[in-house]
């Protein structure tokens, strides 16, 4: 490699013009976040309505139709027991879908060029996309909660725990969505991760049943006990109902670790240009 070039006064003037102020940083981040938000808010019938409809159907079928026959679980009516899990499930899946589809779509469509050739830092790109995923998760979660309170009372015994757990879980799965959006080579990849990984983990993560209900079904009990989602759901359920089949601490710790780990993973992949640069 040749010797470093000296900096000339005209280079210094260009470098000065190229400086990025705090305001410019904030506008850049905000614009990308807004783009991600607009992407799904512009077409709510496609993006917001379907997950809400499926959760409402779960509520009606499992909560009302079958729930009455199941009696109490962990000392609360079945519908009350089930709703926190269902709420968390919708937050997890929606936080995941938004960045996963958006990042892949931007790669596939070529408009990822807009971000990569802009002065946005790789950390800004990853975190703005994750932040929008978190917002989608929380928006869907809020609507599901609205529907839930129409069906039953939810006491929200530990509100700070509820808010913290929701935030951590949505950051974790938005980060994971970002990673999957970078990793996948086709639309099928996002669906495959959802169908073969997230759905089984969520379904076997104590959304619809407690560990106590699995006594005598050792395989299912083992799968549930070893499933990290059981602890995420447990921590959230504890926050909402004040009772849970697992203590909240492991779930909260796991959520924090996942949130940090997934965010860092997404940032590192963006910095490396993984599937973004040749």
């Amino acid at each position: 490699m040749s010797a470093p070039l000296e900096t000339t006064p005209s280079d210094a003037a260009a470098a000065k013009k190229a400086r990025i102020s705090l305001q410019e940083n904030a506008i850049g981040f905000y614009t990308l976040w807004k783009r991600e938000m607009v992407r799904y808010l512009k077409d709510p019938l496609d993006t917001i309505a379907p997950p809400i409809l499926s959760v409402v159907l779960f509520m009606l079928i499992f909560g009302l139709a079958l729930g009455a026959r199941l009696g109490e679980v962990e000392g609360v009516p079945y519908i009350q027991f089930m709703l926190p899990g269902l709420l968390l499930m919708s937050v997890i899946l929606n936080s995941f879908y938004n960045p996963a589809y958006s990042v892949f779509q931007s790669r596939w469509q070529g408009n990822v060029f807009d971000f990569l050739s802009s002065p946005l830092s790789y950390t800004q790109m990853a975190t703005a996309i994750i932040a929008a995923g978190v917002c989608r998760g929380l928006i869907v979660g809020a609507i599901v909660l609205g529907a839930a309170v129409l069906l039953t009372d939810l006491p929200f015994v530990h509100p700070p725990l509820v808010v913290l757990e929701l935030l951590l879980v949505s950051v974790a799965f938005a980060g994971f969505g970002c990673v999957v959006g970078l990793w996948t080579k086709g639309w099928d990849g996002v669906n495959a991760v959802s169908i073969f990984l997230l759905d089984p983990l969520v379904m076997l993560g104590g959304v619809f049943y407690s560990l106590e209900m699995l006594e005598g079904v050792p395989v299912l009990e083992a799968l549930t006990r070893w499933n990290p989602f059981t602890y995420l759901t447990g921590a959230f359920r504890y926050g909402v109902l004040g009772t849970s089949d697992v203590s909240p601490e492991p779930g909260l710790a796991m959520s924090a670790l996942l949130a940090l780990g997934m965010t860092l993973w997404a940032v590192v992949l963006f910095r490396r240009g993984y599937h973004l640069k040749s």
């Binding site: 990025i20 102020s21 305001q23 410019e24 940083n25 506008i27 850049g28 905000y30 614009t31 990308l32 807004k34 783009r35 607009v38 992407r39 512009k42 077409d43 931007s106 469509q109 070529g110 408009n111 060029f113 807009d114 971000f115 802009s118 002065p119 946005l120």
Partner: peptide, 23 residues
């Protein structure tokens, strides 16, 4: 490489300006 399906022509330019920190 145009953000094609949910932004119109004017919005494409405005969003791009935003990525560059333009108010």
């Amino acid at each position: 490489a145009l953000d094609s399906w949910f932004l119109n022509v004017r919005e494409i330019l405005i969003y791009n300006a935003g990525y560059f920190g333009i108010p």
